[in-house]
Simulated scan of single mutants.
Amino acid sequence: MNATLLGVGALALWAFLGLLSRLAAGIPPLQLTAMSFAVAAMAGIAVVAARGRLSALRQSPIAWAHGVGGLFGYHALYFAALAMAPAIEANLLNYLWPLLIVLFSAPILGLRLGARRLLGVALGFAGCVLLLGGGAGFSAGAPASVWLGFLCAIGCAVVWALYSVTAQRLSAVPTEAVAGFCGGAALLAALAHLGFEATVWPDAAQALATLLLGLGPVGLAFFLWDAGMKRGDPRLLGTLAYAVPVASTLLLAVAGEGALTATLGIALLLVAGGGWLAATAR
């Protein structure tokens, strides 16, 4: 299967990240990171073992630092952002990472962007700005914790963009190694949780949301994304990812975390139009 299509599959799963994170609300961010990655690691290692590929977990310290640091850093910041700031606004700030992936690809990987692709990026970015501008969470009187949540959302966008773009520099690392990186992220998050948070025992709904997180957006999606970024087109994936904040926002709105408005419809057209321009660029 085309590697870029695998990356698109990861984008589809990530559309549910915000909704499932909100359904797990009440679990501290580091604890949620540890639990969801523990599920992802157990499922991933089971599949890798069944394929007889456990040797793929033996990687260099640089590969482990890149994998564990990227996965842990992004999700710890993301879950913290959704815990402190309004869900829709924080979720959309996080989705600055597609823009950053496209822009980072030029200086880091030496890939040409081109006018048409840049126009697609600009339209997608305009859609995000329009959505953010219509959000109620951005006000001067917001509590300090809300602004800290917004900073965490921006931070996770930067972390994920850098992780994704630099993954092509580690293209020799097999995708199966992601299972080990998930285990490392779970361990690191668990240690941080024990040092900084009080443990909350999840109820049935929170446990189900955590399980689905670990199997989907925090599990299978990483294997698909790793293959897409290492062997696909990071510029195209970075721009097509602008469809994810729209889908994620719609899911949050349907779940009662925000309202569907005309602004959302216009933003959807901008994001979809930007993705189409980038997809048809030579």
Score class of each variant (00 low, 15 high):
87 A>S: 10
99 L>H: 07
271 V>K: 13
146 V>Y: 02
52 G>A: 04
123 L>W: 01
282 R>G: 12
130 L>T: 04
67 G>L: 02
211 L>Q: 10
175 T>Y: 00
224 L>Q: 08
246 V>T: 15
3 A>R: 02
163 Y>I: 02
245 P>Y: 04
281 A>W: 07
96 L>G: 04
261 T>H: 07
277 L>E: 00
123 L>K: 02
214 G>C: 07
277 L>Y: 01
251 L>S: 05
95 Y>E: 09
216 G>C: 10
213 L>W: 05
135 G>D: 09
64 W>T: 06
252 L>W: 07
87 A>W: 05
232 G>P: 04
28 P>R: 12
262 A>P: 14
203 D>Y: 08
75 H>I: 01
95 Y>F: 14
12 A>I: 12
142 A>I: 01
272 A>K: 07
86 P>Q: 01
226 D>P: 00
139 S>Y: 08
144 A>I: 06
56 A>G: 11
102 V>S: 02
271 V>Q: 15
60 S>E: 10
39 V>R: 08
190 A>C: 07
156 C>V: 04
166 T>V: 10
66 H>D: 07
55 S>L: 11
238 G>K: 02
18 G>P: 08
144 A>H: 01
84 M>A: 14
86 P>F: 00
156 C>F: 03
6 L>Y: 15
46 A>M: 02
247 A>F: 14
234 P>F: 01
203 D>F: 04
193 H>V: 11
126 A>P: 00
147 W>K: 10
8 V>W: 04
220 L>E: 03
210 T>S: 13
95 Y>R: 12
3 A>P: 08
168 Q>H: 13
208 L>H: 14
97 W>L: 00
159 V>K: 06
263 T>Y: 11
8 V>K: 05
258 G>K: 10
36 S>E: 11
50 A>S: 14
77 L>N: 03
227 A>I: 03
259 A>H: 13
248 S>C: 04
6 L>Q: 12
186 A>P: 08
24 A>Y: 01
146 V>N: 01
165 V>I: 12
248 S>Q: 04
228 G>L: 05
194 L>Y: 13
242 Y>S: 02
88 I>W: 00
104 F>V: 05
266 I>T: 14
52 G>N: 03
113 L>W: 13
266 I>F: 14
232 G>Y: 06
265 G>L: 05
132 L>Y: 03
169 R>C: 00
136 A>D: 15
57 L>G: 00
172 A>N: 13
26 G>I: 12
83 A>L: 07
141 G>R: 05
34 A>F: 05
215 L>Q: 08
70 G>E: 06
29 P>N: 13
187 L>A: 14
189 A>H: 07
234 P>S: 01
263 T>M: 13
56 A>M: 12
252 L>A: 10
271 V>G: 14
34 A>I: 07
117 R>Y: 09
149 G>F: 00
188 L>H: 09
248 S>H: 06
162 L>A: 07
179 A>E: 09
32 L>R: 08
143 P>Y: 09
